[in-house]
Design a protein around this nucleic acid. Structure first.
Lengths: 173, 173
DNA sequence: CAACAATTTGTTATGTTGTAACATTTACGC
DNA sequence: GCGTAAATGTTACAACATAACAAATTGTTG
C-alpha cells in the first residue's frame, strides 16, 4: 500500500518542522519573503492534516487576544498558495498545507504554481484527513480526454471524497 | 474530436426543451415531484451552458418583481441535485444543468446521485462554457490509485479549468 | 544617512454564499 | 373531510471573501 496517507502514529512535530524548514528554503531560493505573519499562518495550516477554514486560521491567530482581520489571513494564504506551500480545497472551502516539497517552485522556472496545479487530493469524509499525490496516470487520462474534446487544460482540480485507510480499518475489519 | 462541448451554433431552444422533457420523465418515473418552482429553477439553470450562481438564479426569479428568498433557491437546487438534474461546481461555487440524461437515476437503483457522482467537467476559463463527461479511463485511474493508497472512493470531483475548442480556435488558429 | 520605490500590513466596511428555525400552505392516501 | 407528509414562506443569521485606502516596513540608490 502506498504511503500517501499520513499515519496517525507519525511524528507530527518533525513533520511540521521539516515542512517549515522546506518552506523557508523554497522562499529564500525563490526570493519570496516568508514574513513572521505568513510563517504563523503556515504553521497553523500545518498543525493538522485536515483542511482548515480561513476563519478558523483567523480564530487561532486571535486566540491570544489579537485583532487580526480576515483579509490579513486571506493575504497570507494567497501568498502561500502562490509559493505552492498551501492548497485550497474547493470542495471543502478550506486550506491544506502542501505535502510534496519537491513541488515548491523556487523561481520563474517551469510551471505556474497557483492552484489546481496538477495535484490530486484524497479527502476522508470520516476523519477529514487529506492525502496529496501527483499521479501521472490520472493526469494523463484527464489531459488526453480533454485533448480529444479539443480542450486545452490549464488547471485540473481532482478532489476525491471517500474513506481513508485508518477509518476503513477501524470500522470495516 | 468528441462532441462534449456544446457548439455555439446548436439549437439551444430544443436543447432546453429536450432537457426539460427528460427531467419530467425522470422525476415521474422516480416518484419525485417536479413542482412549478423547481421547474422554474431548472429552466433558469438550463438557460446557458455556463454555470450560474444561486444568487443569480434568485435574481432571475425576482426579475419580474417576485419576493423569493435565497433559501427557496437552495432548496430547489438541492432537490435538482438529488435527482441528478443539476450539478454543483465547487471550483466555481456555481451550478450547471446535467447534460447526460442517461444519468438521471429514476428510483432506488444502483448508485447514489448526490453530487460528485463520477462525472467530469471541463470548464472554459475564457467563455465559461462547461462540458460534462463520464470518462471511464479517468475514473478508473482515480479509483485504482485510491485503492493503492487504501482509500475507498465515494465521490470523485474532477473539474478541469482550461480553454474550450471555440475559444482556442478564435485566438490560436 | 536621506530619499524614494516597492512590498507588506492595518483598518474599516461591505459583498457574496449558504443555513437555521419555525410558521404556513399544499398535495396525497384513506 | 381528515390526518400526514412534503413543499413553501418568512425572518434572521452564519460563514466565506474582497474592496478601498492609510500606514508601516523593507530594500535600493546616491
Amino acid at each position: 500500500m502506498s504511503t500517501v496517507f499520513p499515519k496517525p502514529t507519525h511524528d507530527h512535530g518533525r513533520c511540521v518542522d521539516d515542512a517549515m524548514a522546506e518552506a523557508e528554503r523554497a522562499c529564500r531560493e525563490g526570493g519570496a519573503r516568508l514574513t513572521p505573519q505568513r510563517r504563523q499562518v503556515l504553521a497553523i495550516v500545518l498543525e493538522s492534516h485536515q483542511p482548515i477554514g480561513a476563519y478558523d486560521v483567523l480564530a487561532r491567530m486571535n486566540a491570544a487576544g489579537g485583532r487580526t482581520a480576515p483579509i490579513t489571513v486571506y493575504r497570507a494564504l494567497d501568498f502561500l498558495m502562490t509559493q505552492g506551500l498551501v492548497h485550497r480545497l474547493a470542495s471543502r472551502i478550506a486550506f491544506i498545507a502542501c505535502s510534496l516539497p519537491d513541488r515548491h517552485e523556487t523561481g520563474g522556472g517551469g510551471g505556474q504554481n497557483a492552484q489546481g496545479d496538477g495535484a490530486q487530493f484524497l479527502i476522508c469524509g470520516d476523519c477529514g484527513t487529506v492525502a496529496e499525490m501527483t499521479d501521472r496516470r490520472i493526469e494523463t487520462a484527464i489531459r488526453e480526454r480533454a485533448r480529444t474534446a479539443g480542450f486545452i487544460v490549464s488547471a485540473p482540480v481532482v478532489e476525491v471524497e471517500g474513506t481513508c485507510p485508518n477509518c476503513a480499518g477501524a470500522s470495516d475489519g
